[in-house]
Design a protein around this nucleic acid. Sequence first.
DNA 1: CGTGGGCGCTAATGCGGATTAGTGAGTAAC
DNA 2: GTTACTCACTAATCCGCATTAGCGCCCACG
Lengths: 369, 369
Amino acid sequence: MAEKVPSWPRRGRPRQAEVARLAGVSQTTVSLVLGGNKQGIALHEDTRARVLAAARELGYVPDPAARRLAAARNNLLGVFSFTATFPTAVEHSYYPFLVGVEQEAAAQGYDLVLFTGSSSGGAQAHEPGALDRVRLADGCLFLGRHVPDDQLGKLVADGYPAVHIGRRDEPQGLAWVGADYVAASAHVVRHLTELGHTRLLFVREDDDALASTDRERGFRAGLAQYGHEDRSDGRAVVVRTSHPEIDITPEWVRTRLDEGVTAFVTEETDSGAVWRALQAAVTGAGLDVPGDLSLALLGSPPADLATGQSPTGFDVPRADLGAAAVRLLIAQMSGQEHEEPLVACAFRPGPTTGPPPGRAPRQDPVAGG
Amino acid sequence: MAEKVPSWPRRGRPRQAEVARLAGVSQTTVSLVLGGNKQGIALHEDTRARVLAAARELGYVPDPAARRLAAARNNLLGVFSFTATFPTAVEHSYYPFLVGVEQEAAAQGYDLVLFTGSSSGGAQAHEPGALDRVRLADGCLFLGRHVPDDQLGKLVADGYPAVHIGRRDEPQGLAWVGADYVAASAHVVRHLTELGHTRLLFVREDDDALASTDRERGFRAGLAQYGHEDRSDGRAVVVRTSHPEIDITPEWVRTRLDEGVTAFVTEETDSGAVWRALQAAVTGAGLDVPGDLSLALLGSPPADLATGQSPTGFDVPRADLGAAAVRLLIAQMSGQEHEEPLVACAFRPGPTTGPPPGRAPRQDPVAGG
DNA sequence: CGTGGGCGCTAATGCGGATTAGTGAGTAAC
DNA sequence: GTTACTCACTAATCCGCATTAGCGCCCACG
């Protein structure tokens, strides 16, 4: 009869038992010696040396699986995203986050496990139980808004360490890290104010993502803080549009300018539609930026427009967010309390803003700055 | 006395034993049901259902380490790169490969474990044993030329499933997948031949990377195959330069043209120096492409020049390579023999090639095509 | 009315290493 | 010459799961 011979592990790689035999000691002793004997058990120096020699001679390497089984942890952090983590379409890529995640994870001695919504032989993330796979890791990071609430909630309720990248309210108790859009947006308002602008207009798409809402809040807060409130005459400071390419025409822009608006602020979105429309309209109207008006973008321009110099605005520190998420997750795993979940965005000076027409930039610092 | 309670794992994560208790069966039965009962042991359908329900309710997920220890598989594929997997500098990014790796792995029901050279609490990849971490996964993909040979060789010798992305000779017996530069380069020669070019010049940097060597081989093979051999008068068909920006001047290009060269072929490199120099020289000489001469690039242009339309040449199918690597790895894990390790490059028509000056493109297919 | 044979399920064991509770030998103390 | 302790090391267990041998039970067959 054929011997039953396991395909892989039995080949070559020596066990502690083999080392023990060669050194003339027990497996326990080998484990002790190679494990550094943290429990301080008395061991003769000669024995130690013999074991070490034997291990070296056989080329012993511990089996990580066995080690982790015994140690009850695997030094693995999960990263789960509903969509492919590495989509072909670059604009939806999580890559920038992963840069930070990987660095921080590596620094903390963790490896990463990538779970994708479509993995596990066709199981989709919305199927019940699809998220359970992540339990394989010591803790898990979640990206994207499509992760199903109920399943995530269950993990959290079980006390499984989980951190969402991006602000998220839904599953109660879910930890998250997010960019401080409010402060960053207010900063842009401050910048424009310092340049001398007195009437700013925020143009946003008509959806209610938290990221959009936060930016609007920051914009309004900035207006209030930097003294735009009193100059307002009741006209809207924020406009919404669901069809930027239709609504935002050269005429529309001209009309706004006639009303006294000198600076337009808009936000980064998946499509970048508003930013595109605004640029097209301004160009179409034959206007000069920043000569005739200033433009600011709360976030980064769409990838396909990112070739030249970026417009004034701020950068979402995606790598920092990833790193912060890892730190928060690890803190959570070791039972520590939350760190600060908000990460500051970096203000980005740019060529699209300048003093309003016929006005020199203010030299004095704005109040409340 | 205080109960002995391990910090994390005992929390939340259910064991088969818990599932068994809930379902009112033994741990063995749970293992059988969840493991797909490959041994064909008779199990009542009701029992099966109860176990499944219990497992779902508890959110059971197998411990990969335990699974691996007991059965030697955990549906995890490793991805190891010496440098950070997500480097900040995009040009060295493994991203394109990962796109394919992730897709194929997901399709095959595997999750990915990312190992990095700098992980594991500061252990560096050149330290002995640094690569052993990958043994947690069922098999591992390796990227980059800096993976230490000796350690990789040891894994391979141990029969650990490993596949290198990119051709690699060094550790004996290491499987790899690579792009078929030879065929693709020959194809470019064919294309130029069909356009009517009779004297082609291959300009390459002075290094001996396998990728470069293969392209030259393909170029030469193409010359032979498409009938350039007999038209040769002994002049070099390949030139090497270690300082492209110095050697390749407008005058140099003019001289080559005077010698009868009508098409220049060069290759993708990290820096893209030859391609840059060639473009600069052609522009400097006031020559028109493809009116006065044709240019072809064996690979992709450097990222910063990739804005417009890409030159004639071919694309390295990085995503396909990643996917092929996964397939090869899985085949290896299941004991099957090697698949074809070479992946075809896609010929990329482009605006930089056309008929040579004063000559209409050939209408008849070339011989041997 | 044995008994052979599914059927449905479980006890027992092992994977490789970490940990805990000892065990035996030697020495010191009373 | 017991008792008391150290010292140096090991037997036994456990981690979580997969696998194997085998145990009752019920039915059919002779």
